[in-house]
Write a protein that binds this DNA or RNA. Structure first.
Lengths: 97, 97
DNA sequence: TGAATATATGTCGAAAATGACATGTATTCA
DNA sequence: TGAATACATGTCATTTTCGACATATATTCA
């Protein structure tokens, strides 16, 4: 999984070139939601633009969500999934490895 | 479940006194994480103050997290749970109804 | 091919979330 | 009881995330 390529910071103040287990799990969790969101949108034959209108957001933000951009919150990802009629159980199913 | 008591807005511009299914599910999801976080912290015999230090936050913010304050993000709740060595599978188990 | 459509990326001011602090209220226990 | 400890609540300046926009790059398809 190319975390580096998604713009996730690799270096930090405390650790140089190393992500803590906790940080890694957090990022993986978000990427799982991102990927599932993209799959769901596509399987519904929605364009990013149309989906953006559904959630009162913008095409560029949808693209960032799906790209796993670090500057997108889990809150927005979850709200987006719920807007696609994803059940809580389905959201839960996206989390475990 | 007393959503109103937790400070969640009941009225909005579009709908007066009614939460959409989507909004309700989002709030319930957050409250589940809140409650589980509180239980986990308590079972580990950690004070809010001590836990706050662990996650580089403050006692007041921990209190707000556990109270289900709307102004607390899922991101912070998830990071907090992960700091308590909660596995992704365990987080997933908190979500379904 | 090339126009139309779809997606990716960078930037901005506005809005929301943050840690910190002060202070109020419960709870504990000697 | 009352002091000590734990938790709740309100506010504030700073940081982060937001929708929006411009524009670059991919993809589709006639």
């Amino acid at each position: 999984m190319k975390l580096e390529a998604s713009g996730w910071k690799i270096g930090s103040v405390d650790e140089f070139l190393e992500l803590s287990q906790e940080e890694t799990e957090f990022i993986e969790l978000k990427l799982s939601l991102s990927q599932n969101l993209k799959e769901r949108r596509q399987s519904l034959r929605l364009t990013q633009k149309d989906f953006a209108r559904m959630i009162h957001s913008s095409q560029s933000r949808v693209a960032k969500m799906e790209a796993g951009d670090p500057a997108v919150s889990i809150d927005l990802l979850v709200k987006s999934l719920l807007a696609l009629k994803t059940s809580k159980k389905e959201v839960a199913g996206m989390l475990p490895h």
